[in-house]
Design a protein around this nucleic acid. Sequence first.
DNA 1: ACTTTAGTTCACAAAATTATGAACCAAAAA
DNA 2: TTTTTGGTTCATAATTTTGTGAACTAAAGT
Lengths: 153, 153
Amino acid sequence: MTLSTDQQQVIERIGVFFETKGNQPILGRIIGLLMVADDAEATFEDIQKCLFVSKSAVSQALTLLQSQNKVEYITKPGERKRYFRLKIRNWKTDIQEDMKNVFKFNDVLEEIIAMRGDKNEEFNKYLVEVSNFMKFLKAELPILIESYKKSCK
Amino acid sequence: MTLSTDQQQVIERIGVFFETKGNQPILGRIIGLLMVADDAEATFEDIQKCLFVSKSAVSQALTLLQSQNKVEYITKPGERKRYFRLKIRNWKTDIQEDMKNVFKFNDVLEEIIAMRGDKNEEFNKYLVEVSNFMKFLKAELPILIESYKKSCK
DNA sequence: ACTTTAGTTCACAAAATTATGAACCAAAAA
DNA sequence: TTTTTGGTTCATAATTTTGTGAACTAAAGT
């Protein structure tokens, strides 16, 4: 597999994007490669060669990405190689996943609200407001997604 | 300033939350401390003592948090000490900030879509779908926020 | 039976991040 | 004018994260 300079640059940018989101460098680049690759898939060797990293780095990264449900592989008849690709999950699932995280924070927030004294009512009020909005969002987002899906038909 | 064991534990949990979001450890703990503190503020010294970190670590962390617009300080008449506190920004601003990031990714996504060949139309279609949904979200979120604000009155 | 392919595992090296302490500074107090 | 307070700065130490290479495995090919 050969990449154009353009493709390589986009891979780096996707890499940086995922890196700043708190992931380790190769993960983002592998995702980038899989997004950019003509047929949207790459073998173990492709990944190694395109990203200039060691076998073990690729192996570990792929294991992680698969455990995160971001990557999967297919095989082709008569070939031993695995073809890795991005797991096409519907964005509905992805967003709900993200939301879970938001609400995990809301749980902590509610705990804080419950534990706070009344020395600073303005701040307390602010926390309650944020928490309420999070709960609102939790309720509304699925509805929003539905309305989007309808608008597509 | 003295903290209860409960408060300390919540601070650690908030710390971990921010850490996993890709921030450095003390940042999250300082935010935790400022959320949990009775009067929602703390001096430089308070922070140092409560979190058991060096002066320089506190200084650097506060500089960063202030540059990120997450923390500010007030002063009190006749006192030289600064009282640091969370900057109460309305969640509207915060969320719009987060959104900016999502849309920065959508820009890359659109670039990828434009650059991809037609070897894998299913994948292309998927990318377009995700991109469209992001654009939809960009348009709808402000409306959602408005409708929440109305529901509060 | 042995060689090759396609990867995995793990101890460790390299690199990046984070925290420290010592020296510093500017304003206020003594 | 010297000292104290409330920090800041910066080189570097400590820690964590990330990547490597060597040894290994299991299935397939010869």
